[in-house]
């Protein structure tokens, strides 16, 4: 094949390729890629802002500003027998209703099942052994009781008097669901209380929206939430999902930035609107 013929073939081939590429560029949906990340200067600005309000950071400030979607969830419901088998196996149970909550008692303790799906257990027995309370102990208890789930992630431990509250947060595809917490209270290595709030995450909504940055969330926090924080050690600034309590079987949850202190207090900023979404002051 001579050079002229090869050139002709190449021209035809590239012409075809260019037409194809041009068509794809023209018709390609203009979806937005991730906006950007916070610069080092912005991270410093956020850090300075917190320090100006007397806060001490024990965590890093996330740089990423991703696109997220709403999360569809359903209420986690289990039959009564499920809970009785876990907490009161082979035990005679007495039942009472107080308002919207159902109360079950046996010699081991008291179990309450709330209308919104929350379950709390309070042990009657005093600790008989003296052991050091630990996250591993709390996790082992949950596993033994069949309450452990691979989506649970240790969040923090909060000391409340003699009790130590080990908090595990439910996650979905890596995102913490800050409103779904399993708490195990230990005194001298014995479980005294268990509180369970869970949902069934269904799916993310289709449309994604770029969230506000951690810097914007921190600005909101210092403007509206900081004065309520007595403990000035910030242990977490992260993206997740948070919802208030609704009398619903299915609902959607918005992404939030959580700013949490070492004593368990947390402030939630809606990651779409930048408005205060909730707190646990």
């Amino acid at each position: 094949m001579d050079l002229s013929k090869a050139k002709t073939l190449l021209i035809v081939a590239f012409l075809g390729l260019n037409i194809f590429l041009g068509y794809k560029v023209w018709t390609n949906p203009k979806s937005l890629r991730q906006g950007h990340v916070l610069t080092n200067e912005q991270i410093e600005e956020a850090r300075d802002l917190l320090q100006a309000y007397g806060f001490h950071l024990q965590t890093s400030i996330p740089k990423q500003i991703p696109q997220l979607a709403l999360l569809h969830v359903a209420r986690y419901t289990r039959p009564l027998s499920f809970w009785l088998n876990i907490f009161f196996p082979e035990c005679e149970v007495q039942e009472r209703s107080i308002g919207q909550e159902r109360l079950y008692a046996c010699e081991h303790g008291i179990l309450m099942i709330f209308d919104n799906g929350r379950v709390t257990y309070k042990a009657k027995d005093s600790p008989t052994t003296i052991m050091e309370s630990s996250k591993a102990l709390a996790e082992r208890y949950l596993r033994e009781k069949n309450l452990w789930h691979h989506s649970l992630r240790f969040d923090q431990v909060i000391t409340e008097g003699v009790k130590e509250n080990f908090r595990f947060i439910q996650t979905y595809q890596g995102f913490p669901l800050f409103f779904c917490v399993t708490e195990v209270y230990l005194v001298d290595g014995s479980v005294t209380d268990v509180k369970i709030d869970r949902v069934v995450p269904l799916r993310f909504a289709q449309q994604e929206v770029t969230v506000i940055s951690a810097l914007t969330a921190i600005e909101k926090f210092v403007a509206e939430g900081a004065q309520h924080f007595t403990n000035k050690t910030i242990v977490d600034i992260s993206l997740g999902y948070y919802s208030q309590d609704y009398n619903a079987s299915r609902w959607e949850v918005a992404p939030v930035w959580r700013i949490a202190a070492a004593d368990g207090k947390a402030f939630y900023v809606n990651a779409f609107s930048g408005e205060t979404e909730g707190s646990n002051f």
Partner: peptide
């Protein structure tokens, strides 16, 4: 304005929020 940021809550008493 932006439905992608709007949460839908189906309450058990039939109210949609």
């Amino acid at each position: 304005v932006n439905m992608a940021t709007v949460r839908r809550i189906e309450e058990r008493n039939g109210i949609h929020i």
